[in-house]
């Protein structure tokens, strides 16, 4: 094998190694279904799920539901994430702000936000606001906690250096504090993206008239188990997509970090 070919194989091996296990699981699953070990009313074969995917894709139902869910997820994320980020910055930079709000926020944080679903349905019915509220609340805390942590863990020696070199508050924030807090903020972002999907799916399963969660619940009523499995697989893919996006952002903005230099 030539050197080039072998490095190419090595590269595919590195990038593709994460997919070996899922592919093996699906192959084993298909075999088990074909052999009749796995009854179709418990778990349909991957080929049946693929057929359901194709059917829903052609009818436009799948695209519409993914679109609705994604729009909900992202708007809830934008609202909760920006409030969490702003409060994290404020409480990281100002002792007064932290003193005023942190205790309250920590108390609210310990309420599982999904426990609020009955109350949220009473407040908002099953309209869009209910889903937005829950997603926003869900993503708020990981972003808030990690932004605050990030700012508090910025090396005070670097802040002192910035002061000695005459940086004003603005320069100090943009050149020292924010870049220093960024790794922690990204951890919060990745957590928040996971919570974003989780919250949305639960909310849609309980109260919605469109979206992926709704599609899965409808399919359950009509015993379309292939559609239920398809929905679950799509959650997995969407979650992975969001995480890959966050990792890409991380790599682009944390190129200086030793952890990303040989990635």
């Amino acid at each position: 094998m030539s050197l080039q070919a072998s490095t190419l194989v090595a590269r595919i091996g590195r990038n593709g190694i994460g997919w070996v296990l899922p592919v093996l699981v699906i192959a084993g699953w298909e075999l088990a279904s074909r052999a009749g070990v796995m009854p179709a009313n418990v778990l349909p074969a991957p080929s049946a799920v693929a057929e359901a995917f194709w059917r829903l894709l052609l009818s436009g139902e799948l695209i519409r539901n993914i679109g609705v869910s994604t729009a909900r997820a992202l708007s809830g994320f934008a609202i909760g994430g920006s409030i969490g980020f702003a409060l994290g910055l404020a409480n990281g930079l100002s002792r007064l702000s932290r003193g005023l709000t942190d205790t309250t926020l920590q108390m609210i944080r310990n309420i599982p936000h999904l426990a609020l679903i009955p109350l949220v349905i009473l407040w908002f019915g099953i309209d869009e606001e209910a889903k937005l509220f829950l997603v926003a609340l869900g993503v708020f805390f990981p972003i808030y906690v990690n932004t605050l942590l990030g700012i508090q863990s910025v090396d005070p020696q670097l802040v002192e250096m910035g002061r000695v070199y005459g940086m004003d508050r603005r320069a100090l924030f943009f050149r020292v504090i924010l870049p220093g807090a960024l790794p922690a903020i990204f951890v919060g972002l990745r957590y928040a993206l996971g919570i974003m999907w989780l919250t949305l799916i639960v909310a849609e399963t309980i109260s919605a008239s469109s979206g992926l969660g709704y599609m899965a619940m409808q399919a359950r009523e009509f015993l379309l188990i292939d559609v239920v499995v398809l929905s679950i697989l799509i959650y997995a893919l969407l979650g992975k997509l969001a995480d890959s996006f966050a990792r890409l952002l991380e790599r682009l903005s944390l190129g200086w970090h030793p952890a990303f230099q040989n990635a």
């Binding site: 250096m161 005459g166 050149r175 870049p179 200086w256 970090h257």
Partner: peptide
């Protein structure tokens, strides 16, 4: 006390703040 997220030359430029 160099800023790890700034290149060497950007770190030196910190000395020209203002």
């Amino acid at each position: 006390r160099l800023l790890p997220w700034a290149s060497v030359v950007r770190n030196v430029e910190v000395g020209l703040t203002g």
